[in-house]
């Protein structure tokens, strides 16, 4: 965390979209993280279940978020994440920080990072780790790219 982010946050809270793409309905993690980010002072929009990449990207732009958190446990990450990243690029919104939480096999982590995912938080990650990472890495508002 650095001083400039702190100032940005004091002016305006960080806005985060927590999304659950794919067919899986296990939403305990998504809900816990949504609430933890909210308790940490961020504004959180939780999309609910079964969001397509298009819906996620649309909602992110509409809600003007600085960070997207994708919760994926089903193994569909290699299909879903690249589509989200491509759509963000297409819409000129690739300054949004994208993080992934869930069960991601070690051999897929490099691929997802190449796609532009900033961090992957596996099972057992402390909430504070995720909160700190988002605070330290979102692009402050009003700063040109």
């Amino acid at each position: 965390m650095n001083a400039s982010h702190n100032t940005a946050e004091q002016n305006q809270p960080i806005r985060v979209l927590v999304a659950k793409p794919g067919l899986d309905g296990h939403d305990r993690g998504a809900k816990v993280i949504a609430r933890a980010l909210r308790d940490a002072g961020m504004e959180v929009i939780y999309t609910g279940l079964r969001q397509t990449p298009e819906m996620i990207v649309n909602a992110s732009i509409q809600e003007d978020v600085q960070c997207i958190g994708l919760s994926i446990l089903s193994g569909a990450h290699n299909a879903i994440v690249p589509r989200v990243m491509a759509l963000l690029k297409e819409r000129g919104a690739d300054d949004i920080l994208v993080v992934v939480g869930g069960t991601i096999p070690a051999q897929d982590i490099e691929f997802l990072k190449q796609q532009g995912v900033a961090a992957i938080f596996g099972p057992g990650t402390p909430l504070e780790t995720t909160i700190d990472f988002i605070r330290a890495n979102v692009k402050p508002r009003g700063v040109p790219a």
Binding site: G22, L23, D24, G75
Partner: peptide
């Protein structure tokens, strides 16, 4: 998951699952 959600394997929503 596609079976649990009543989609065939070739359905667009089944991609990756």
């Amino acid at each position: 998951l596609p079976t649990l959600m009543g989609y065939d394997s070739d359905h667009v929503n089944s991609e990756g699952e």
